[in-house]
Write a protein that binds this DNA or RNA. Structure first.
Length: 758
DNA sequence: TGCGCAGGTGTTTTT
DNA sequence: CACCTGCGCA
C-alpha cells in the first residue's frame, strides 16, 4: 500500500481509492475531509492522471490555497501548480476571461464587487426617478442576486408569475424593469458582478457546445468541496462539466450548511444522488478534532433540527473539559472577560495567542473584543469586515487601473472622473451619463466627443485633460509592466499626491494603503512564471484576481495572534480554544432568522459550526446589555444555551467579579435581625439621594433560590422587592422595585444581592 | 463647487 | 454610535 494511504481510516481510504464514477462523501465536522480530498488528488496524479485535467472547486480562496499546498507537499514536486483549484468564482472568471468575447464581453471585463454593483444599481434607480425609500438598493439587489443564483435572467424574471406577484405585494412592481436595466448596464460597462460569473459560465456552457465539449474533455476529474453550500447555478455548472466523464466527487456536510442566504440549497445533496446511475456514498464519521465533550455537545444541539441526514459523528478522544458558560452584564464586560481568560489560560497552560479564536455572529460585535485585547496588549487579527480592497482610497486607485484596461466601465469612470477634484462636477457627470444612455454610447465615448456634445470652457478643458491623461498612460500598456503603469497613473492622476498631502493619522494610513497596493502589484508583476504554464502578469489579469480576493494579506496569518471572525468565516478552520460570544436572542439566533423554522435551523447549524471549531476548550458567553445603534438594549440569553446538555456545561465562573453558579443548589440564606431591617428600610425609602450606601452587614447571598415577593438589598440601588423572575437556568433575571430608584432588571448571575427577607 | 451641519437610518452571514 | 444624504451657504 502506498504510504500516503496509511494514515487514513477505512472510510477515508475508500474515498481516496474510489476514483471513477460519481462519489458523494458525507463528511462530518473534523472528519478529515480536506485530508481525503488532497490525498485523493495526489493519488490520482500518482497514478498517472495529468494534473491539468483535475478540477477542484472550493468556496474560499483560503481552502483552495491550503489544498494546493498540501498536495504540493504530498507529491514533493510542483505538479500541483497545474491543477485547476480555486473558488467557483475565480476558476470561472479565469475561463470567462478566455471565452469572454463569445458572450460579447471584452476579455478584460471588470469584475464588480457588491459595493460596485450596488452603486450601479443605485444610479439606475435614480435615473428612473423611483423612490429610493421604496426601491432600496439592498432590497432590489438581493432580489436580483437571488434570481441570478437560480439562473433567472431578467426576461425570465419578468415572465415569472410568482416573482411578479411578490413584487406587486411588496409594492415594488418595477423590480423586473430594474433587473433588466441593471443587466444591460453591466453588460454595456463590460462588467460582471459575482453572480454574473456563475450565470455567464452557465450560459457559456449551454450556448456554445464547442466550449462545453472543450472543458468537459479537459476536466477528467471534478471535485467539489463544501457541496452543501452550492446554489442552483453552481449545481448546473458542475453537472454540465462532469457529464462526459462522470468522475464527480462532491464533499459536504448538511449539518454545516450555512449559506442559504446566498442561494445555497441542501436540495443539491439529494439531487446529486438522483443524477447519476450509481452514486457511491461514503460517510466520514470519526471526528479527529474535538474532545468528546465538545463533540457530544455539538451533536446534541444539532438533534434539535428536523432536516438532516442521519450520521453519527464519534470520537475516541477523552472527554476533556466541560464547556464554560459565562454571562456578563454588558458587551464590554464580555470583551473584558474574554481578554482576561486568554491571559489566564496562556499563563496556566502555555497556550499562545494563536491558539485562541473569538467567534461571533456579526462583524459589528468585534469592537468590544478589539478594545479589551488592545488594552491587555494581546496581539490579534480580525478577519472579514472591511477588506483592504474595499477601502475608499484603494477602490479609487483600482478604478483608475480598471479604466486603463476597460474604458467601457462607467462605474469606475464616475468614481474617479472628479477625484482628485478637477472641475468635473455632478451636473457635468449627469449630463455625460444622460447622453451616454440616450445615444446608446458608453460614458467614455461621450467624453471623447465632449466638444460636439456641447461642453465648453473650463468644463471642456477639464474633460479633455482627463481623457488625455488616461490615454497617455494607456499608451504605455504594451511597453511597461503592470507595476510601472500603476505607478504612473497614481502619479499623473494626482491621487498619490493628494493623500500624501493629508498629514492626519487617517490620511497617513490611506497613503500607506496606496503604497501597499502598489507593492502588491509589484509583487504580482515580479512573481516568476511558473514552470510549464504561461502565467499572465498583465494589469488586466491582476485586476481580475484582486476583486475576488477577500483580503490583501491572507497569507501572513501565521503570526501569533488571537483570531477574531464571524462564525461563517471560521468554517473549515480549527483552534485549540474557542470563544463563541454573543449568545443572545436577536443576535444569535439573529432577529432576522427567528421566525421561520428553516432560518432558525440554519442558525442552529451555525452554532454547531462554531462549537465544532474547537479542539480542546469552548467558552460560550452572553451579555445581558449591549450597545446597538448607540443605545443600550437588553437581550435574553440565547435559546441555544438551553439546548446544551447541562452535564457538559460548567457555569462556574473563574473570572472576577465572582459570580454565582446558576446550576448550584440552594444555599444558606443570611438572616439579618428584624431591627436592622426596619431601620435600613426607612432610611432608603425616605431618602431622595441617588447613591445608596450599603449596610455594614452587607454580604452577597446566593440568589438561586430567589422568589417573587422577597426583599433584597443591592449595593447601589438599595432595598427593593422582587416583582418578577424570568430567564433560563443559566441566566435568571429579576425585576426588582427599588422604590425611589425605580424598577430595575437585575441579572442574578452578576449582581450582588443580599436577601433581606425571604 | 465644496464644505459643514442636521437629520435620518441601519446590523446578519460572503464570493 | 457611525455613516451617509441632502441641504444651505460661501
Amino acid at each position: 500500500m502506498q504510504d500516503y494511504l496509511l494514515p487514513l481510516n477505512e472510510q477515508q481510504r475508500e474515498a481516496v481509492l474510489y476514483t471513477e464514477g460519481a462519489l458523494m462523501i458525507v463528511a462530518g465536522a473534523g472528519s478529515g475531509k480536506t485530508k481525503v480530498l488532497t490525498t485523493r488528488i495526489g493519488h490520482l496524479i500518482n497514478n498517472g492522471v495529468d494534473s491539468f485535467r483535475i478540477l477542484a472547486l472550493t468556496f474560499t480562496n483560503k481552502a483552495a490555497k491550503e489544498m494546493k499546498e498540501r498536495i504540493e507537499h504530498m507529491l514533493g514536486n510542483s505538479e500541483a501548480r497545474n491543477l485547476y483549484i480555486g473558488t467557483f468564482h475565480s476558476v470561472f472568471s479565469r475561463i470567462l476571461r478566455v471565452e469572454a468575447e463569445r458572450l460579447g464581453y471584452p476579455n478584460n471585463f471588470t469584475i464588480y464587487d457588491t459595493d460596485d454593483a450596488k452603486s450601479v444599481l443605485k444610479n439606475i434607480i435614480k435615473e428612473q426617478n423611483l423612490d429610493e425609500k421604496i426601491y432600496k438598493v439592498a432590497y432590489v439587489f438581493n432580489r436580483i442576486s437571488a434570481s441570478k443564483n437560480n439562473l433567472y435572467t431578467y426576461k425570465e424574471y419578468q415572465a415569472d408569475h410568482a416573482a411578479q406577484q411578490e413584487d406587486a405585494r411588496s409594492n415594488r412592481p418595477l423590480i423586473g424593469q430594474l433587473f433588466e436595466a441593471y443587466s444591460k448596464r453591466c453588460f454595456k460597462n463590460g462588467a460582471m458582478d459575482f453572480d454574473d460569473l456563475l450565470v455567464n459560465m452557465y450560459i457559456l456552457l449551454t450556448n456554445f457546445p464547442e466550449v462545453l465539449a472543450k472543458y468537459q474533455h479537459k476536466f477528467r476529474y471534478v471535485m467539489i468541496d463544501e457541496y452543501q453550500d452550492t446554489n442552483l447555478a453552481q449545481y448546473h455548472i458542475i453537472k454540465l462539466l462532469g457529464a462526459v466523464h462522470e468522475n464527480i466527487c462532491v464533499v459536504g456536510d448538511d449539518a454545516q450548511s450555512i449559506y442559504s442566504f446566498r442561494g445555497a440549497s441542501m436540495e443539491n445533496i439529494f439531487q446529486f444522488q438522483k443524477d447519476y446511475d450509481d452514486v457511491k456514498i461514503i460517510k466520514l464519521e470519526q471526528n479527529y478534532r474535538s474532545s468528546k465533550t465538545i463533540l457530544d455537545a455539538a451533536n446534541q444541539v444539532i438533534t434539535n433540527n428536523k432536516n438532516q441526514i442521519k450520521k453519527e459523528l464519534w470520537t475516541d478522544k477523552a472527554a476533556g473539559e466541560k464547556i464554560k458558560l459565562v454571562g456578563t452584564f454588558t458587551d464590554n464586560d464580555e470583551g473584558k472577560f474574554v481578554a482576561d481568560a486568554i491571559i489566564e489560560h496562556k499563563l496556566r497552560n502555555h497556550y499562545k495567542n494563536k491558539d485562541f479564536a473569538i467567534l461571533y455572529r456579526t462583524n459589528a460585535q468585534s469592537r468590544a473584543f478589539e478594545e479589551s485585547l488592545r488594552r491587555l496588549n494581546i496581539n490579534y487579527k480580525i478577519f472579514g469586515g472591511l477588506s483592504f480592497y474595499q477601502r475608499k482610497e484603494v477602490k479609487d486607485y483600482v478604478a483608475y487601473l480598471r479604466i486603463l484596461v476597460n474604458t467601457q466601465d462607467e462605474e469606475s469612470l464616475r468614481r474617479i472622473i472628479n477625484y482628485p477634484a478637477r472641475g468635473i462636477g455632478t451636473t457635468t457627470i449627469n449630463k455625460i451619463s444622460f447622453e451616454a444612455q440616450t445615444q446608446n454610447k458608453t460614458f467614455w465615448e461621450i467624453l471623447l466627443e465632449a466638444q460636439s456634445i456641447g461642453f465648453k470652457g473650463a468644463t471642456l478643458t477639464a474633460i479633455q485633460d482627463f481623457v488625455l491623461m488616461i490615454r497617455n498612460v494607456q499608451g504605455m500598456l504594451e511597453k511597461k509592466n503592470a507595476y510601472e503603469i500603476a505607478f504612473e497613473i497614481g502619479k499623473v492622476s494626482g491621487i498619490v499626491k493628494d493623500l500624501h498631502a493629508d498629514k492626519t493619522v487617517e490620511g497617513l494610513a490611506r497613503y500607506e494603503n496606496l503604497q501597499e497596493l502598489q507593492n502588491s502589484i509589484k509583487e504580482y508583476t515580479e512573481t516568476p512564471t511558473e514552470d510549464g504554464e504561461v502565467v499572465e502578469r498583465s494589469l488586466g489579469a491582476y485586476l481580475q484576481q484582486i476583486t475576488l480576493l477577500t483580503d490583501a494579506n491572507e497569507n501572513e496569518e501565521d503570526g501569533d495572534t488571537v483570531k477574531l471572525m464571524t462564525i461563517h468565516a471560521s468554517k473549515g478552520l480549527e483552534f485549540p480554544c474557542v470563544f463563541v460570544v454573543g449568545l443572545e436572542e436577536n443576535i444569535f439566533p439573529s432577529s432576522m432568522s427567528m421566525y421561520d423554522r428553516e432560518d432558525l435551523e440554519e442558525e442552529r447549524r451555525l452554532f454547531y459550526v462554531a462549537i465544532t471549531r474547537a479542539k480542546e476548550k469552548v467558552w460560550i458567553s452572553f451579555a445581558s446589555n449591549r450597545y446597538r445603534f448607540g443605545s443600550l438594549i437588553q437581550n435574553e440569553p440565547s435559546r441555544f444555551i438551553d439546548e446544551l446538555p447541562t452535564q457538559l456545561v460548567d457555569a462556574n465562573l473563574s473570572s472576577k467579579p465572582k459570580k454565582q453558579n446558576p446550576f448550584a443548589g440552594p444555599s444558606k440564606p443570611a438572616s439579618p435581625s428584624s431591627a436592622d431591617k426596619t431601620i435600613q428600610q426607612k432610611k432608603v425609602f425616605s431618602s431622595a439621594s441617588t447613591t445608596h450606601v450599603a449596610s455594614a452587614n452587607f454580604k452577597e447571598d446566593d440568589t438561586s433560590g430567589l422568589e417573587v415577593g422577597m426583599q433584597v438589598e443591592h449595593q447601589r440601588f438599595g432595598f427593593g422587592n422582587v416583582t418578577s423572575l424570568e430567564g433560563a437556568i443559566a441566566n435568571k433575571i429579576a425585576t426588582i422595585d427599588f422604590g425611589t430608584m425605580g424598577e430595575k432588571k437585575i441579572m442574578l448571575n452578576y449582581a450582588k444581592l443580599r436577601i433581606v427577607r425571604g
